[in-house]
């Protein structure tokens, strides 16, 4: 399971730059990120090389941050494979709360981050489907 960090950001100039500055100055390398935003604020979700340290430095800089277990999966790089994987999860009652893609690859496979309603069940489904669930240590060091 991969530890994702979520950070609360007000929707105003300079906040995103501030988070990345804090992380950068503390030697934290960002592996993947996504932002969900509203008019007033956004939630920045990050996969980083050292989640514990990232959480600590963000907290020290007065950000509200939290951990969440998410799955990183590698999917075959061809049309329809993501749809097939997501379909299998849905058929088995696992709800996808959100997802985003990763900039790197695991081997030749593009990576996708999934926030799911039931990680344990999802792992089983994914194993049955032959979808590679990527190990956290591999994700952090990509």
């Amino acid at each position: 399971m991969v530890k994702q960090i979520s950070v609360f950001l007000e929707n105003k100039a300079g906040r995103l730059a501030e988070v990345t500055r804090v992380l950068g100055e503390n030697g934290i390398n960002i592996r993947a990120l996504s932002i969900a935003d509203t008019t007033d604020y956004g939630v920045l979700r990050l996969i980083v090389n050292d989640p514990e340290k990232a959480w600590r430095v963000l907290k020290d800089s007065d950000f509200t941050a939290s951990f969440m277990d998410v799955l990183a999966i590698g999917i075959v790089d061809e049309a329809g494979s993501l749809s097939k994987t997501l379909g299998a999860l849905q058929d088995n009652g696992v709800v996808i709360e959100y997802m985003y893609a990763f900039s790197g690859k695991s081997g030749d496979k593009p990576l996708v981050i999934l926030k799911l309603s039931d990680n344990a069940k999802a792992m089983k489904v994914l194993a049955e489907e032959g979808v590679a669930v990527i190990d956290a240590s591999e994700v952090y060091s990509l």
């Binding site: 994702q4 979520s6 609360f8 969900a36 935003d37 509203t38 604020y41 939630v43 979700r45 509200t64 939290s66 969440m68 709360e97 959100y98 926030k115």
Partner: peptide, 15 residues
């Protein structure tokens, strides 16, 4: 001010 208790990685929950 957002507290860890009120925060979530999902916008829907914050809303």
């Amino acid at each position: 001010e957002m507290t860890p208790d009120m925060f979530s990685d999902e916008v829907r929950r914050i809303e």
